[in-house]
Every structure is written in structure tokens, then in C-alpha cells.
Write a protein that binds this DNA or RNA. Structure first.
Lengths: 338, 338
DNA sequence: CTGAAAGCGCTAACAA
DNA sequence: TTGTTAGCGCTTTCAG
């Protein structure tokens, strides 16, 4: 009854069942032909003992690891868990399993996490963004395994990429806003050096405004804290400072939702007096009093597609490695139609 | 330049640096004394080659894996990423690393995920809840590694546990509500067979109400979908059905927030006409127009404490294995003070 | 301070 | 259908 410190091995199962280790291994992996008589014996012995295979030994021997490294900036952003669920779902049809690492938007940490994960010799890597340290890129290239960079397609991938063009997303939102007649436009977002995708949206956004001779008339940035509360605060700050504003473009839906709640409380006419738009298309918006205009980031689909590419490559296929999805604006009821 | 399919080994580094594999291994792990001359040589060779150690081989040889398996029901619940961040933070001071598995609130899936993770021979397990399949319990017991069950302390752990008493949380909220004079009390929550902690809160809640001769006068359950939108819908449903209601206890803050937004739109006096309370103390609440009464689930602290217990046990210590945290009600402004 | 030998627990490849 | 033989790439142990 006293539990040995050492865990059970194939040998234990072999001895109890009176079958060779090799055959036990076959049974446990459903490989090769085994008579159902021995199969029963082995299965019973394994179950009785409570044997759990040692994948470390198995992986070393077979040179195969059914793990896919997934590296994302954050888990608290809502966006990434959804990408993950797309990945998990797609991988469930294979024998691959996702393993998640978090970089906290810090390039050096990303590099470190990547190094750790590669040292477990996964079958593939899915990593958020196209911007990485030189060392990280080098590791990805040298790894010899399929790599899919996700979320963003404005740039050159190490290998494959699946995402949307954030620059284009910014441009399209700018066009829609201009078409609706807004001209005094403010931008509220995250501190951008951290977030390349928000930066690209902003760049696309200002670029299109500039073509119509419009400039962002105020802006405000935050980092950390409750996004909803920050959206509220920043909206107040900006409106106090620049009362002429007739539109606010938020870099994500959460701060947009905070702003929306604030403006509704103030009794401001939306989208007449002030229009609003966010980004991501988060589910949360469905519970708000008004539907915030936004653009879907195609999170789940990105996850699914990326996982499929990895699975196909692992299986020896060579699928199209550059996939750009094209989300449409949803106008909700905070952005007039042009 | 053509990358070999095979990845680099210690042997490659050994050959390039002209130092034995053993010494290379020592340098790369900072183990034992190595002259700084050879250390330099080795480090340079490893870097030039872009060598990434093979942890699979290392783990097999050393019988040591610096991974801690963390099994939680969901990533989209907000609550769990926060627990995770507590775990990561605490483990950062050690050489242990968390690896996350998700059970989707399904016992059989939990069992499967546990099995997969145990087959990688982690140094410890942190798992949400005290309810598991018999097989899962057996595996945990047989694993011979430290196991911490988290979130809930109403029950018997396999090994260690860190959490709060949800029954008590339900009782305390019931007392506060009764003290404030509310009597027509409704309960809105998740379909409970899935969620033992919500169930326990509900049980504690009704138990305390019963002692004062009060019964829940209406209830409504949901599963899936946007919690905020569900909270809104369910609140409407319940109020249409039972207009006499003077208090609604929500099983989580997100649906509570949805209900709050709905009631505010309806121009209902809160907390005069109707009082509200949720559970979890999520950050999101800070951005709402009114502060929802709630109770902190101590998420981060639970994560930290659980990780510390694992770390100490791995280090050979024997820390206190049962930790019950005691959250306090925050009344916000949706619950009158008794 | 450095190296050589012997496995860790499993699976590929081959033999019976 | 089953068994045998060699490692997988690293670390432990012991010898120099």
C-alpha cells in the first residue's frame, strides 16, 4: 500500500501481464496487430496498476512530440482565449495538443518563453504577431518545424501567417467615419510601442484621414488597469479638453464600452452628437445598452486556420502559408452610415 | 546553409568547442566548476550554432521535470486567467513553470487532460475544485507528486487545498441581504450541475435564508452565450414574471453587471426598489455606472498560495496544506447596509 | 577541473 | 502475432 516513489514503467505492466514490453507498448498505443487475448491481459494489468505512460521516454525514443507551442501576449485580453479556443478546437481532430506560453507583450520574455518551449521539441509553433527579437526569429527559422505567425499580416512571416491587415482595418474605419460626416476625430488607445497591431491600426487610420485633409484632433493613451474604467476616464479627459470632438475611435472594444457608458450617462446623443467605434467585436458588447460600432478581429477563425496549417504540415502536406482574412465593419448604433 | 532536419545536440557543441559533452552540459546548466576559459569556448560554440537544449532527453536522464500542471475549467471566465497570473508570478521566483490544461467544466475531459499532463511527469499539479472523477482522484493520489486543489475548500482534498468556502460566501451574502431588509429575493445563475462552486454558494445562500423563514421567490439559469447579455435577459424575464422582487443575487459579476445595466435603463431605483449582488469582484465592475455589491473570490491570492505550496513541497518542505481564505463583502452601491 | 561509462523508459527496426 | 536489439540525447556517477 505504501506508494513507491518511482512511477510505474512498461516493465511493470509487462511482468504483471506476462507479455513482453514491446507488445505492451503496442497495445497501449494501438499499433500493430495484437491478438485480442493478449490485448485484454495487457489492458487489465495496466489498469489495475494504474499505469500512466511516460511521454518523456516515448518522445525521446520516437523523436515525436505531439505538442504545438502557442505563444500569445496575454490571457487577460479576452481576445487571446478566443484564439486559443479556435486552436484547441481544430487540434482536437488531430492527436496534437496546444501548450500555451504568455509573453506579456515583452519581446524579451517572448524570446525566453519560445526558447523554453522549443527545448521541448514541439511539432509546431503558433505565435502572435510578426514582430520578434532577432534571436527569436533565428530560433524559429532554425527549429525546422512549422511556424505560423497569427493576428497580423502586415509584414513578412518567418514561415506561415494567418491574420488580418490591421493597417487596412484602420483605413476602413477611417473611411466609414469620414463617409458618415464626422471631422473632429479623437483616438484613444493603449500605449503603442507595446502593441504593434494597435499601432498599425492607428497608422492606417491617420493615413486615410490625412488623404481627406483630416487630422486626429486629440488622443489619449493608457496602460494597465480595468479597460472599462480607463475608457470611461479617458473619454471624460478628452472631452473636457476638446469639447468639439464629434467622434472617438478606441483601440479596443473594452475601452470603447467604458466610453459609451460614460457618454450615455452624460446624456450625449450617440451617434448624432458624438460617434464611437472600437475594435475586436467582443461578445461583451452584446450586453451593452447600445451596440458599439466595431470590426471583428476574426479571432476564432485565425486560431482554427493556424492550427489547421500546423496539422497539415505535420501530416506532410504543404498548405497555403499566407492567409489574410478580411473583416467587415459592424456599424452597431454608434456610427452613422455614410 | 541548408538546415538539417535533425536538431543540434550537445555532441555538436562538443565537437565545435573541442570540449567533452559532459563539460558542455555542465556549462550550459551552470553546474559544477568549469574554468572560465572552457566556459567561454562552450558558450560561444553553443551560441554560434544556435543550440537549444533538448529538455526531453534532459528530463529522462535526470528524472526531473520543472513543470507544474495547472488544470482549470475555462479560460474565458476572467476568473481563471487571474488565478493563473498569481501562479505564474509565484513560480517565477523558482525554476518551475506552469503548463495549463482546460477541462471545459467536463469531468471526463478533466480526467483526460490530467492523464495527458501526468504522462509528462510534472513536478506538481494545481487543479480547480474538489470534485473529480474517481479515476482522476486515483491518478492524483498515485502520482506521488504534490497536488493542490484550488478555489474551493468545502470538501476533502486529495492532498492540499487553497480557496474559500463558497457555502460560507453564500451564507454571508444572504445575511447581508436579510439585514438590509430585503425579503423578495431571486437567484440568477449558471446551470449548476456544471459549476460546483456556484452550487455551493446557492446552497449556503438558501440555507441562511431558510433560517429566517425566507425562500428564494424566483430563479433562472443559463448556460453559454455572452454573460452580460444573459444577465440582461434573465433579469427582464424574472422581473416580468415576478414583479414583487426586491433583490437579485447573481452567481457571477458579469451577469450581475448585465442586470444592473438593464435595471438602470428601466429607471429602477437601486438599491432602494431593487438591490443587487454578484460574486467574484471582477475588475470590470469598476467601469460600470454603479458599483455592484460583490464578494471577492481571492483569485490571485489563491494562485499565489497554491504555487508556493507546490514550490515548497518540491524543495522538500512540508507547508500547511489547507488554506482557507475569507473574503469580505463589498457593498458597492447596489446593496443597502443593514 | 575534466572525461568515460552507464543508463533514464520508451519505440524503430528487424527477426522469429 | 510476438520478441529482441539498439539506441533517442542527456545527466548521474565515478574515475582521473
Amino acid at each position: 500500500m505504501a506508494s513507491d516513489k518511482r512511477s510505474l514503467t512498461l516493465r511493470d505492466v509487462s511482468e504483471v501481464s506476462g507479455v513482453s514490453e514491446m507488445t505492451v507498448s503496442r497495445v497501449l498505443r494501438n499499433r500493430g496487430d495484437v491478438s485480442s487475448a493478449t490485448r485484454e491481459k495487457v489492458l487489465k494489468a495496466a489498469k489495475d496498476l494504474g499505469y500512466v505512460p511516460n511521454k518523456i521516454a516515448g518522445a525521446l525514443a520516437s523523436q515525436r512530440v505531439n505538442l504545438v507551442a502557442v505563444i500569445i501576449p496575454s490571457l487577460s485580453n479576452m481576445v487571446f482565449p478566443e484564439v486559443l479556443s479556435g486552436i484547441s478546437q481544430a487540434l482536437e481532430e488531430t492527436d496534437l495538443q496546444p501548450v500555451v506560453g504568455v509573453s506579456d507583450y515583452i519581446p524579451e520574455k517572448e524570446e525566453k518563453v519560445l526558447y523554453e518551449m522549443l527545448s521541448w521539441r514541439p511539432s509546431g509553433v503558433i505565435i502572435a504577431g510578426l514582430e520578434h527579437t532577432d534571436a527569436a526569429r533565428a530560433m524559429l527559422k532554425a527549429s525546422g518545424i512549422p511556424v505560423v505567425e497569427i493576428m497580423d499580416t502586415d509584414g513578412d512571416p518567418v514561415d506561415a501567417m494567418v491574420g488580418i491587415s490591421h493597417r487596412r482595418a484602420g483605413r476602413e474605419m477611417a473611411s466609414a467615419i469620414l463617409d458618415a460626416g464626422y471631422r473632429k476625430i479623437a483616438f484613444l488607445g493603449t500605449k503603442m510601442p507595446l502593441d504593434h497591431r494597435a499601432r498599425k491600426r492607428f497608422e492606417g487610420f491617420t493615413e486615410t484621414l490625412a488623404k481627406s485633409g483630416v487630422e486626429v484632433c486629440d488622443r489619449e493613451f493608457y496602460s494597465g488597469g480595468s479597460a472599462l474604467a480607463k475608457g470611461r476616464e479617458m473619454t471624460k479627459t478628452v472631452l473636457d479638453r476638446s469639447p468639439e470632438i464629434d467622434f472617438i475611435y478606441y483601440s479596443n472594444d473594452m475601452i470603447g464600452a467604458g466610453g459609451l457608458l460614460y457618454l450615455l450617462e452624460q446624456g450625449i446623443d450617440i451617434p448624432g452628437q458624438i460617434g464611437l467605434a472600437g475594435f475586436n467585436g467582443v461578445e461583451l458588447l452584446q450586453g451593452l445598452p447600445r451596440q458599439l460600432a466595431t470590426m471583428d478581429a476574426c479571432r476564432k477563425e485565425i486560431g482554427t486556420k493556424a492550427a489547421e496549417i500546423i496539422a497539415q504540415r505535420v501530416a506532410g502536406d504543404d498548405p497555403d502559408g499566407k492567409v489574410t482574412l478580411t473583416p467587415k465593419i459592424s456599424f452597431g448604433d454608434t456610427l452613422k452610415r455614410g
